[in-house]
Design a protein around this nucleic acid. Structure first.
Length: 825
RNA sequence: GCGAGAGUGGUGAAAUUGGUAGACGCACUGGACUUAGGAUCCAGCAGGCCUAGCCUAUGGGGGUUCGAGUCCCCCCUCUCGCACCA
């Protein structure tokens, strides 16, 4: 396979891929006692073909996997398919084939593409979530959760995507549109199944503090999404009624400033509050109008505050005052209690509302150094301060007052401390075909009856034979008709399927023993492999998938399957691949097909470019000429090794004492490069700088080894071996081939990551910068072990510097060891 | 509006604790070898000027310091997330 100037990537890559496949080089098993490392890239949706984002994601993961292997870790690096989902159904309808067939075709094709990239996966662990041997265990988990009361079904307002004909979880609504098809999402009232993720809200929030290996940004996003607020829940008795309205506030210190009460239009008490009142018609009209407005909410603009007086009053338990009750368009039924005590002086929304409807504004908190006058205020004062006009609490500061008021409310029975979350329970019902069927039965007599575990899996009809009916299950009478497991009368199967995000919430645990036939998770294997040490994927899953997976981990722990609290110790959110300033997408017509590139340049070049062009967390601007650069570099290394083959016959160790200057220089650079590459990978996976380090070493090796007479063969050999070893995780076929060509018996794959020698890496001479008044005026080459005194003397007498010193005495001389001398005049 | 992050040559990007700004690439320019070069090799490449040198440059303006891309304050722009959350 030797050629003159360019390596034959086609032959080489094929050769090594076959070798790895035949020898199952990357198959792993638990080895108790040996340190493990679990590296995982977010598994792909089998959409048809891989794109550049995949290439980048998997290249990064593969470098980490190979690097850790060379460091002696037992590395788990699996791959599979997130295979349920709508595009399969849509494609199936368009092409007249079955979603299962379409999905299978895509998986087969994409697997080939991944193999062509030379990724070091343990393919024996491959899984596809659409297969019964995966989703039957998900169904079993569903039943366990149901048993534990972690799942419920209720009728509620859901997010409906008309285009996809299904319900979406709140996390799947992006700016009011569907995360998948970008169409507007509408509210719709219907029955749905929910996971009680809110049961874990507190732990999900608290454990964010343990995720020190996650990007700040993601942690913050999750914290905000969970949105914990603490405060007071307080009951306001309705006048002339035995009902009361419970409000939630985070500002109990402002409770003496309440001048009205606002209710969400969906509030259950609203009807009875207006019944028989002169305002009834007006309020009903307002409710109707507000509901309509919400349907076609203009997302850009916050609508003007609007409301209607109900004709009823409630009593502020702290002041005994009558408080008028309004229905208001800005109060959310989904948050808190759907009722808000309005304090216009200290809440901007209440302020706007009060000004509009001419309601009183009463100041009860004076911020420091200010004297608020309600008649002069043009916005609310939300800052804390000292309480005024607040009965026994007057004079307290806001923080103290909040606690005092909560205590008082609790003691007098009108209120209690309360915590509320922004996080909602996870709606998992989907009204589409291509998903895991929910294993319950609806019986007229017995109600909702879980399918007995022995009857699992509930197979998706038609999916097994890859043909037949794939309309939504609620349209498939054969599927629906069943008998009740309890009373054995005719009953109906549940027709909703599970949100595809359920599959991806536990796949990382299934990988630890994907073939297990006795349960969803092999506890022993999971205990060995989990948590995932390094997880890699797009930041678009910062909330969605990553929150769900955290929830599942905690829940599976409580069900006894797992022993970890968190699934992913370290998270790397890789940037997007962009071209012409925009994310690659079919609609923009700026996609680059990895297939064409691999065909033209080979997988190693494509991998190298995607690693070199930018650090992984940053967006990567696609530059076709950059690929040429990567290719050029590899060919240069190839020529260098081929031209230097004789040096590999010298197997003597390097003897530093005998080295001439050029040899010593190269040897030093080699050790420096090992240090640099190792550090770049260890600290933050900055492969771009790691590669540039190797490039410098290659450049130096190429220059000095032209000088065959003086170059020490052992140094030359060690340098080339080092170059190949350091590059191996990034361009494995290429390095493995050159390793073999240069006469090594054992594959490079089994080699150990090199260690650098501190002594050998040490510079003998260093460059010292001489500054005058902070400006660089000269540079000096000095021995590395020079003392400050000598250095200072040399600096002052340096001729370029001396000119500045004429007629002047230095005021101060700063010497920074091994770096610089600054002479201040 | 709130929260997070980012602004460095023509371009992708580098720069321990504050210590030579622009490593390594790409593009470009010149040269060599060539029938040829979109191969390879060599050299140059922030801008400016009164060119043995000097000055100005890391979004803008202040500040701290012997010394600031890096620290502090104010402002501008961009990206991302949340968005009437009581």
């Amino acid at each position: 396979m030797l050629t003159n100037d360019k390596y034959d990537f086609k032959a080489i890559e094929k050769k090594w891929q076959q070798c790895w496949e035949q020898e199952k080089t990357y198959r792993v098993t638990p080895q108790p006692g040996r340190p493990k490392y679990y590296v995982l890239e977010m598994f792909p949706y089998p959409s048809g073909r891989i794109h550049m984002g995949h290439v980048r994601n998997y290249s990064i993961g593969d470098v980490i996997a190979r690097y850790k292997r060379m460091q002696g870790f037992n590395v788990l690096h699996p791959m599979g398919w997130d295979a349920f989902g709508l595009p399969a159904e849509n494609a199936a309808m368009k092409r007249g084939i079955h979603p299962a067939a379409w999905t299978q075709e895509n998986i087969d094709y994409m697997r080939g593409q991944l193999k062509a990239m030379g990724l070091s996966y343990d393919w024996d662990r491959e899984l596809a979530t659409c297969r019964p041997d995966y989703y039957r265990w998900e169904q079993q988990l569903f039943l366990k959760m149901l048993e534990r009361d972690l799942i419920y079904r209720k009728e509620t307002t859901v997010n409906w995507c008309d285009d996809c004909q299904t319900v979406l979880a709140r996390e799947q609504v992006i700016d009011g549109t569907c995360w998948r098809c970008d169409q507007p999402v509408l509210p719709k009232i219907m029955y749905g199944w929910f996971f009680k993720i809110t049961d874990y809200a507190d732990e999900l929030l608290a454990d964010l503090g343990t995720l020190t290996g996650w990007p700040e940004k993601v942690v913050t996003m999750q914290r905000n999404w969970i949105g914990k607020s603490t405060g007071l829940a307080c009951d306001f008795r309705v006048e002339d009624s035995d009902q009361s309205i419970t409000i939630f506030t985070t500002r109990p210190d402002t409770i003496f400033g309440v001048t009205f009460m606002s209710l969400a239009v969906e509030h259950p008490l609203l009807k009875s509050l207006t019944a028989g009142k002169p305002q009834e018609q007006q309020v009903n009209d307002f409710i109707q109008q507000t509901l309509i407005d919400k349907q076609r909410a203009n997302l850009e603009l916050e609508p003007e505050k609007n409301g209607a007086f109900t004709g009823s009053y409630c009593i502020n338990p702290f002041t005994g005052e009558r408080v008028p009750i309004y229905a208001a368009n800005f109060v959310l039924m989904e948050y808190g209690t759907g009722a808000v005590m309005a304090v216009p002086a200290h809440d901007q929304r209440d302020f706007e509302f009060a000004r509009k409807y001419d309601l009183p504004v009463r100041v009860v908190v004076q911020p420091l150094g200010e004297l608020l006058d309600p008649s002069l205020m043009n916005e609310a004062s939300e800052a804390p301060g000292l309480l005024t006009a607040s009965g026994p609490f007057t004079g307290l500061d806001s923080i103290t007052a909040q606690q005092a008021i909560i205590d008082f409310a609790q003691n007098s029975g009108v209120g209690r401390p309360h915590v509320t979350y922004r996080l909602r329970d996870w709606g998992i019902s989907r009204q589409r075909y291509w998903g895991a069927p929910i294993p319950v039965i609806h019986c007229q007599t017995c109600g909702i009856v879980p399918v007995p575990e022995s009857e699992l899996p509930i197979l998706l009809p038609g999916a097994g034979e890859l043909k037949g009916n794939h309309s939504p299950l609620h349209q498939q009478d054969d599927f629906i008709a069943t008998t009740c497991p309890r009373c054995h009368k005719a009953a109906r199967r549940e027709t909703d399927t599970l949100d595809t995000f359920v599959e991806s919430s536990w796949y990382f645990a299934r990988y630890t023993n994907p073939g297990l036939t006795t349960g969803p998770i092999d506890q022993e294997a999971a205990a060995y492999w989990l948590p995932v040490d390094q997880y890699i994927g797009g930041v678009e899953h910062a909330i969605l998938h990553l929150l769900y997976a955290r929830f599942f981990t905690k829940m599976l722990r409580d069900l006894g399957y797992l022993t970890v609290d968190e699934p992913f110790t370290n998270l790397l959110t890789q940037g997007m691949v962009i071209k012409d300033g925009a994310k690659m997408s079919k609609s923009k017509g700026n996609v680059v097909d990895p297939n064409d590139l691999i065909e033209q340049y080979g997988a190693d070049t494509v991998r190298l470019f995607s690693l070199f062009a930018a650090p992984p967390e940053r967006d990567l601007e696609w530059n076709p000429q950059g690929v040429d650069g990567a290719s050029r570099f590899l060919n240069r290394v190839y020529r260098l090794v081929v031209q230097s083959l004789p040096c590999f016959q010298d197997t003597a160790a390097v003897d530093i004492a005998l080295l001439n200057e050029p040899s010593r220089q190269l040897y030093r650079k080699m050790h420096q490069t090992i240090r640099r590459v190792t550090e770049n990978i260890e600290t933050n996976f900055h492969f771009n700088t790691a590669i540039s380090g190797v490039m410098e070493l290659v450049n130096l090796a190429a220059t000095v080894s032209g000088d065959k007479e003086v170059m020490d063969a052992a140094v030359q050999r060690e340098t080339l071996e080092t170059i190949l070893t350091l590059l191996f995780p990034m361009v494995p076929h290429f390095c493995e081939e050159l390793w073999q060509i240069s006469g090594h018996g054992q594959p490079l794959n089994n080699a150990v990551w090199p260690e650098y020698n501190v002594e050998a890496a040490k510079e003998e001479e260093i460059t010292i910068v001489i500054q005058v008044n902070g400006k660089v005026r000269a540079k000096l080459q000095v021995p590395a072990d020079i003392d400050d005194q000598t250095l200072q003397q040399m600096a002052i007498t340096e001729e370029k510097v001396a000119r500045f010193l004429e007629n002047k005495d230095p005021r101060k001389i700063i010497v920074v060891q091994k770096k610089l001398v600054n002479i201040v005049l």
